[in-house]
Design a protein around this nucleic acid. Sequence first.
DNA 1: TTAATAGTGTCTGTAAGACAATATGGG
DNA 2: CCCATATTGTCTTACAGACACTATTAA
Lengths: 235, 235
Amino acid sequence: MTVTRLPRPSIRVTADLVILTVRSGELHVLLIDRGNPPYLGRPALPGGFVRDGETLEGAAYRELAEETGLLAGDITLEQLRAYSEPGRDPRGRVITIAYLALGPELPLPVAGTDAAAARWIPVEQALATELAFDHEEILRDCLESARARLEHTTAAATFCKEPFTVADLRHVYEAVWGQRLDPSNFRRKVTNTAGFIVPTGERRFPDVGRPAALYTRGPATLLIPPLLRTTTDEP
Amino acid sequence: MTVTRLPRPSIRVTADLVILTVRSGELHVLLIDRGNPPYLGRPALPGGFVRDGETLEGAAYRELAEETGLLAGDITLEQLRAYSEPGRDPRGRVITIAYLALGPELPLPVAGTDAAAARWIPVEQALATELAFDHEEILRDCLESARARLEHTTAAATFCKEPFTVADLRHVYEAVWGQRLDPSNFRRKVTNTAGFIVPTGERRFPDVGRPAALYTRGPATLLIPPLLRTTTDEP
DNA sequence: TTAATAGTGTCTGTAAGACAATATGGG
DNA sequence: CCCATATTGTCTTACAGACACTATTAA
């Protein structure tokens, strides 16, 4: 039996970012307009090639800083999955690892990058648009991941600028899940989960209605028991 | 302002497999002994380089077939995550995407591959061994992923050769979670979850004790509500 | 009959959904 | 006072954990 030396092709690797934030009660994603071929001028997820001696995480945080000015301390990126269809990039063999970030009302993206423009787009609108590459699939996968994450972790609080009210936190769930939640039951749930939110003792006085107590993020990262969506269906 | 052309290094990519099965009530993982440097003779996860025109999934299923003779129809692989530390492979820049497979009592691995040997090792023993590369970290991550998967999906049934009894299914949970479950409450849970297991009407007559009803896997993939471990702790 | 395992029934505490009731601010 | 929102409380149902109890086979 002859042992054949298998081909070990060189592959270029990118880290692409799905950066989500809630603006005016609606979930938005950061998109750029591509400044180079292929898909010139087409909306796309920010991202770029991994450099020598750089981890995927490093590349993802570098891209994040270039596009938004946000540093690693400001926001947490989480690896989602790899996309490897041979034909997915016309330039050749490119594998992309997608990263998901959840942030509070983020600043407008910085200019001066490769991208012709970078801006916040409501996710519903983004999904109705023709995105570059297979970025629609990546965005859909990240969305489902983000929705599931809210069920089992305290990640929703990272969408909130501190200090925040229980209603602020609830609005995050409502925006990401696209579903209204009962304010009373929601409050009971989050206040009974140790370490989720920590009261500051301060209050916020809105234009109308009773003032609300203010909170900061607590040390817990997991929600036990989880806070489940009511309408769950097969994937 | 000068635009610098960024380096876009070529990277080699592997798909590595964490194949788990339950043998004699204990969770086992498939390991090979490396037949080439680096880490010559050291136990490692099976896996190999992605070829031209091949997806990561394709490479993973090809490796699976080469190592075990199992085909895509026999077992499902699920992508876990990518490992990209620059120094993780002494041969140069190699990024690995890990795949997780859960299977019923699987056949002994086929011989005649690169690997000097392939065999089932209890996971506790594998974790106490010095594995090649960063495979211990990959194995730990896949283990935690498998444990979490049993909580929210019907994946545990894929560990069982059909037809199986409720006790067979319970033994899977006990092996993967490393924790005893109450037979009575476990039965109530799985039989009340629509589409998890389907009775065949047949029974199995063991050497000792009352015969048990036999089941096959049902169409459901998600467990709603989930079947949670009692002892859950922060990651 | 006994040993051993399969399977059923019951009690109890926790938590979620629905929703009423009360509190507290600004007009 | 009225409006809007925050916050508390109550009732009901679902379900998990503990565990007693019954059923069915082989030896």
